[in-house]
């Protein structure tokens, strides 16, 4: 009997999870269908690029720089043991482009911009602003959700590229300026090892997928917020947690398809 109950609970949880997923997907489609306003009134989207992208610039650039510098120091330490310290640039560039750039940028983006989007929309819901909009015959999906979604989807890949660039620059500063490695070897080895389609393009594809995941989660959780102060805070937490987990899972799946057998 205990097992029967346990099974029933498990089944119920699974069904609820699937229903929730379906709900999110329907929301996604609804946002996509409401895109026209985000395009025809570009200013709305521009404003969201400002809040999601420009305001995340500092954290992205600074973290990128430090990640690159740390990676260079550690990489140099280990690679010099094998007499391969020339490959530090390759190590950093590959690590950043293939994994760390898109993933860490997306995690930071979820924490910085995703939570802000959820909190803003959630607060609008808690204070009846979304309902007021609806009562004024303006669809919040078109006026609030779509511009934020597209603002995030446009900002995130640029942020990921900036993150990788900052990291490579950080590695350059450490290995070439500080340790005194040869400038030509740093760039030359990097260029010989990094493939445009394989590494750079896949990096951009990953960051676009992550952008959709983070922004969709953030906008959805905002709209799904329970309209209380507690509801807003737990929705914000959910955005960061769910988006981060989804990013890592999606990264694993994409890595399998992109880099297997190479």
């Amino acid at each position: 009997m205990n097992i029967a109950n346990w099974l029933r609970a498990l089944g119920q949880t699974t069904i609820n999870a699937l229903a929730h997923l379906g709900f999110i997907f329907r929301f996604f489609i609804a946002v996509l269908l409401n895109t026209p306003m985000a395009v025809t009134r570009a200013r709305l989207t521009l404003r969201e690029i400002y809040f999601a992208g420009v305001l995340s610039l500092v954290i992205i650039l600074v973290s990128g720089l430090f990640v690159g510098m740390v990676l260079a120091l550690q990489g140099y330490d280990i690679l010099s043991t094998y007499g391969a310290s020339d490959s530090v640039g390759v190590l950093v560039a590959m690590a950043m482009l293939r994994e760390l750039g898109p993933v860490v940028a997306a995690l930071l983006f979820a924490g910085r911009a995703g939570s802000a989007i959820t909190a803003e929309i959630g607060l609008m819901k808690a204070t009846d602003q979304l309902l007021a909009m609806e009562m004024m015959a303006v669809d919040p999906l078109a006026r609030v959700a779509a511009p934020r979604f597209w603002g995030g989807v446009i900002s995130m890949p640029l942020l990921a590229a900036l993150f990788s660039t900052a990291a490579i620059f950080g590695a350059y500063v450490i290995t070439v300026q500080l340790i005194g490695m040869d400038d030509g070897a740093f760039w030359g080895n990097m260029q010989a090892a990094v493939d445009f389609r394989m590494d750079v393009l896949n990096s951009v594809i990953k960051s676009i997928v992550f952008a959709v995941i983070v922004t969709l989660t953030a906008v959805f959780e905002g709209f799904d917020t329970e309209p209380t102060a507690e509801g807003v805070s737990s929705a914000t937490t959910r955005t960061v947690v769910h988006a981060s987990l989804a990013i890592l899972a999606a990264d694993f799946i994409m890595t399998i398809f992109m880099f297997r057998g190479v």
């Binding site: 521009l46 690029i49 400002y50 992208g53 420009v54 610039l57 560039a93 482009l97 900002s155 890949p157 640029l158 942020l159 590229a161 900036l162 990788s164 660039t165 490579i168 760039w187 990097m190 260029q191 010989a192 990094v194 493939d195 445009f196 590494d199 750079v200 990096s203 951009v204």
Partner: peptide, 24 residues
């Protein structure tokens, strides 16, 4: 202005990754 700056440096860094790092 800020969005313009942001998009510009974002695109520049993409170009940097493609040309200088990826050797496109």
């Amino acid at each position: 202005l800020w969005v313009g700056i942001f998009v510009a440096i974002g695109v520049i860094s993409l170009v940097f990754l493609a040309l200088k790092v990826g050797n496109l």
